[in-house]
Write a protein that binds this DNA or RNA. Structure first.
Lengths: 180, 180
DNA sequence: GTCTATAATTTGATAGAC
DNA sequence: GTCTATCAAATTATAGAC
């Protein structure tokens, strides 16, 4: 049985992954749960607090799922495949953008702490991918390759969302994997 | 000497490429130009009209610049290099996201016609890149590869914006070009 | 924890004078 | 083309009762 806080997080995540930070209001969320917007403020004092909780939960869940997918991957190729799979699931399970992909694009319109939290998610992504790459590559090379991989998957989610065609994600992700 | 309409488009483009559609108001733009928000409605009846004009102008300018860069490119590699260069310039000249990259992420929160205009920009992008690829590849393959290339550059702009580090774009774009 | 009530501000938009 | 004046609605947020 989920608490009101959890239900609020679920509703907010769904809405923000579709429309972005500024297009989601406390009233929207309250209506969806059948409560009043003042009650939402009991769970999250400010909208910024809601955003921070959202990014924290999203990031934790993402890396937990990623580790589960990668746990028995031996080769670099297997680990990168697990990474792609985690993104694919995030998109295809719900037909929604990556929360951080959307917030990252809106970055300059976000409160400072939220902006930092999103940036931290991407730092962690790039680090994870860089570590998964073959160890014989120079560190500089690995970081650039990792940025390319993260960028491709994030951009592919955005394209699939804008074009309303999830297959666009698969096309881009598979073309990427074929090169690795 | 630019007209008020042009100055409004400039101000709106800059603001929306930083913060997104919903975080930009007619009053913001009016203040920036030293006029009243009611006057903005003379130039653009609704916010949606402003958005449409913005995407139209952005798309025209993008493809004009792209053709200028690609005009004397003979090989597929040269044409794709020109494509990357056009994105790089868009980002590095102003340290701002691609307008359509940001609106594409916010897609579900946008008015229908605006959403379609953004999707058309990406359709045109993918078609352009697919045509630039080596003609010996099967059409299906080319479209997937084109989606990968567009996705990488769009994702790289988002990453560079979120991380506040333009070099992240170059790292991802160069790693992409190295594979082509 | 949720409510009513309310404040303060912002927003998109219109009517009509100049 | 720009202004004043105004509107209705929405938004974030708080105080205090239950």
């Amino acid at each position: 049985m989920s608490t009101t806080t959890d239900r609020l997080l679920d509703a907010a995540e769904s809405a923000m992954r579709l429309r972005g930070y500024h297009a989601v209001s406390f009233r929207d969320l309250a209506d969806e749960l059948g409560i009043k917007s003042a009650s939402v403020h009991y769970h999250f004092r400010q909208k910024e607090d809601l955003g921070l909780a959202l990014v924290g939960r999203y990031s934790d869940r993402f890396f937990t799922t990623l580790e589960a997918h990668a746990v028995q991957s031996q080769t670099p190729k297997d680990r990168l495949s697990a990474y792609c799979k985690t993104y694919r699931q995030a998109l295809r399970a719900s037909d929604k953008m990556c929360l951080c992909g959307l917030l990252g694009a809106e970055t300059c319109g976000l409160p400072d702490r939220l902006r930092s939290a999103v940036a931290a998610f991407f730092d962690a992504n790039i680090s994870w991918v860089a570590k998964a790459l073959p160890t014989n590559l120079p560190a500089r090379h690995r970081k650039a390759k990792a940025a390319q991989i993260v960028a491709t998957l994030q951009g592919a989610m955005m394209l699939a969302t804008s074009l309303r065609d999830p297959k666009t994600f698969d096309a881009a992700a598979n073309a990427l994997l074929a090169d690795l």
